[in-house]
Design a protein around this nucleic acid. Structure first.
Lengths: 196, 196
DNA sequence: CCTACCGATCGGTAGG
DNA sequence: CCTACCGATCGGTAGG
């Protein structure tokens, strides 16, 4: 049992790599199997369908983003909106840099999910984005952020953060912490009324 | 002659739509043909390969970004870096909103080009990004932008701008001009040292 | 996890 | 732009 669960996780990891590099549609079941040194048909001993592999990756990524945001908000619930947004941004960047391929698949390949799963994922994304919009609206209300279209502001920040998944490499020039610091700074400055 | 050129442009437009909606790999030659009300094989009377269609779209998009940036820089060459960056950002947003599907294909599907074309496109992208880095570095040098990693700052801004291609719709809540205004503001604020 | 196999679809060509 | 067709590959199943 524990063996098969480990194998299942291996499949997700190998598939993340391939989906990230070539995209879901351009990756065949046999490509995934080859990376695991098994036959194409043997993959179906572990998964019901190719789409299940994609869903598993995307679902785990969504859960990671949700958990990180929830704990960031819990830890800063009494703080001012600037600090709360900083915590949200940092949490998001941390999830991306902790597994950039998974994050990249989450961001770019979720449209290949079945209609049901796509709709469910869209709802989760909306909920996640609402956290950002809420904090930004709070900041505008107390005068910490300049008056702005909160939907646009949240989208601006989130797309910039998600972009990290496309270029970040763990062995790159910048450490994950350095990226997080820079991005928190850039994101907050884009919204704050005035810098002292 | 003019007929075939018009047909060729029609192919690019239809393919942009499909590549944007489903991705290059998940779009078949027959999907494109069906949208044009012709047989799958008939498409080869107009194009040499499926990849040629992708290249045509991506190449036109790249040319549009380059031309817009060059003219923006020409018009503001003597201005201060803040104004020059504002012009670059506005030009970029204008290209995206003028044809969001083409821009989206350019941003997300270029990895499906052949190795040669991919390398050439990577070089053009580098050149384009260098314009942004250059203006940001100039701004840092004169104290208009705060000291920052110019590569990170340019990537932050450009990924946020490219994100517009994924959500902007001409019939949406915000006009192209409104989006451009907001994004210029957000991008500049993320970099400026102090707001008056 | 394997071998053997399935129908469907893929990008593309030949010849008009 | 069409019909007819190609070999290759696709996701997936049967039966062990």
């Amino acid at each position: 049992m524990i063996e098969t669960r480990a194998r299942r996780r291996e499949i997700d990891q190998v598939a993340s790599e391939l989906f990230h590099a070539h995209g879901y549609a351009a990756t065949s079941v046999r490509d995934i199997a080859r990376a695991l040194d098994i036959q194409g048909a043997s993959l179906y001993a572990h998964v019901a369908s190719k789409e299940d592999v994609l869903f598993s990756i995307v679902d785990r990524a969504a859960a990671a983003f949700e958990a990180a945001a929830a704990s960031a908000e819990a830890e800063t619930s009494t703080a001012d909106p600037v600090e709360r947004l900083a915590a949200l941004v940092e949490a998001h960047v941390d999830v991306v840099t902790s597994d950039p391929r998974r994050a990249s698949v989450f961001v770019t390949e979720w449209r290949h999910l079945s209609a049901d799963r796509r709709a469910a994922m869209a709802a989760r994304r909306d909920g996640y984005e609402r956290r950002f919009r809420g904090v930004i609206a709070d900041g505008v209300a107390v005068g910490a952020f300049r008056s702005t279209d909160t939907a646009i502001a949240a989208t601006f920040v989130l797309t910039a953060l998600n972009g990290i998944a496309t270029w970040y490499r763990p062995d790159g020039r910048l450490s994950a912490d350095a990226v997080a610091d820079q991005y928190v700074d850039l994101a907050l400055r884009s919204l704050t009324e005035d810098h002292r």
